[in-house]
Design a protein around this nucleic acid. Structure first.
Lengths: 244, 244
DNA sequence: CGTTAGTTTGATGGTCCTCAAGCACTGTGG
DNA sequence: CCACAGTGCTTGAGGACCATCAAACTAACG
């Protein structure tokens, strides 16, 4: 299969583990139950019991938690190749909600299928756990950003991280990438108000660092932006193959 | 074994999965390589390659990330019964550091031993993954707190969560618990300045909600504090046995 | 052509930071 | 026994960063 024919998840995992034909076949089988969801309607609600996880094939999703006072915090965004709700499989109830940001395509993965696949192919299991560990490392980095970075650096860091993640599945580069998020999404993710997000974006644009506009992110000076954001992509652990 | 003789991890897992004698034995074997670490000297440094994880037997640890500008963000605290560095096993380098807050005792667990134990006893594997999922849910809740709660509610929520976690291993109750953290630790965990932490604690104390003083947390009005903090312990998933 | 979602800008104010200083307690060495 | 340093806690004053409120503008859409 050429990269273009592979699922984004296969493409992502292949960058870290050389998968055998058998492992690729098992992975392909996990993609069997294809489903679609429309933008804006939650796939999974906070508090709902979660029996299945999903592998995102196309489109963007966000996972978030709602508070009693109505504010929401977006925990993470999922882009093609990412798992959704992998963690919640073992907890009795999903601890957060998933909202498709655009219309999406995803493969439903039952807990039983996943556990079976893991039992059958240990190397694939390692790859999947690697992906889960990486997702968690991103949440941790997100936490650091909200706790200890000012709004400008936080935004810059966020846009850089997204770029790196998208590059891994061929949807972005150091030039920029397409991005369907609204400024409200950015606000809820970064713990800011939408108004301030707008000012921050203007600031970054006028500094000649990065432009977010009309659904597209453009890096004007990748190196300087990286320094400004103190962005060290090491936590993304994507510097080369892990297992030969 | 009576609860008092069990390791805190065994006690914690037993609250959710009824473990057989065989499983208890495998779990006990994971505790073989006992080590001690002194307060203040990092066990694992950010960027170091991590081959082993630890199970904390006694004492408190914090995991944190340092930034270029010198500020630090504490991601989580570990109390007896918690894993340390479970996630980093699969990533090439540890994405954060671990610092013992007091002198501690921990069991070193090699990646190979852990994988073997998981392969041998699927129910134990489920229990361990449950614990890992729960840890991640706590990081997510921490993220929500920093992003969307004001300083008072953030502190209140944090103290309540710690209380719940400690209660699970018999080290706390709705009355309160012993806590060796300094106000600097609280500041670095909650994304606040130490000065403001002090003011927040005074505020909570004078409101008759909770007192943090001389290494001890005292809940004055647990119900009212819970409402004030919007604390819903569901994400801790500790309402009863998961697997019979 | 009105409605809605999203963006943009201004004005005002609150939360929390920074700087600064003093206090209490502990351990150490002269 | 006392000086002194180190750690942690406490309080005050001033100001930065970001939230909130308000309103105008654009584009898409039925």
């Amino acid at each position: 299969m050429t990269p273009a024919e592979q699922s984004p998840l296969t493409r992502k995992l292949s960058a870290f583990v050389a998968l055998s034909d058998v492992e690729l076949a098992v992975l392909a089988r996990l993609h069997q139950r294809r489903r679609t969801f429309v933008a804006g309607r939650d796939m999974v609600h906070q508090g709902q019991s979660a029996q299945a996880a999903y592998i995102l094939s196309s489109g963007w999703v966000c996972s978030y938690k709602l508070q009693a006072d109505g504010t929401r915090q977006i925990v993470d965004f999922q882009v093609p190749g990412d798992f959704l709700g992998l963690r919640s499989i073992l907890l009795r109830t999903s601890d957060h909600s998933f909202e498709p940001i655009v219309d999406i395509e995803a493969a439903e993965v039952l807990a039983s299928d996943l556990l079976e696949a893991i039992a059958q192919t240990p190397r694939l299991a390692t790859a999947i756990l690697w992906a889960a560990s990486r997702d968690e490392a991103m949440v941790v980095e997100h936490l650091v950003g909200i706790g200890r970075r000012n709004a400008d650096a936080r935004m810059a860091h966020f846009l850089l991280e997204l770029g790196s993640r998208l590059a891994l599945v061929g949807m972005g580069s150091k030039k920029g990438y397409d991005c369907p998020l609204t400024q409200y999404h950015l606000a809820d993710a970064l713990g800011l108000s939408a108004v301030h997000v707008n000012r921050v974006l203007r600031q970054l644009r006028e500094s000649g660092l990065v432009t977010f506009r009309d659904g597209h992110v453009t890096f004007h000076d990748y190196t300087r932006l990286t320094e400004f954001a103190d962005f060290d992509p090491e936590y993304l652990d994507q510097t080369g193959p892990l297992l030969a």
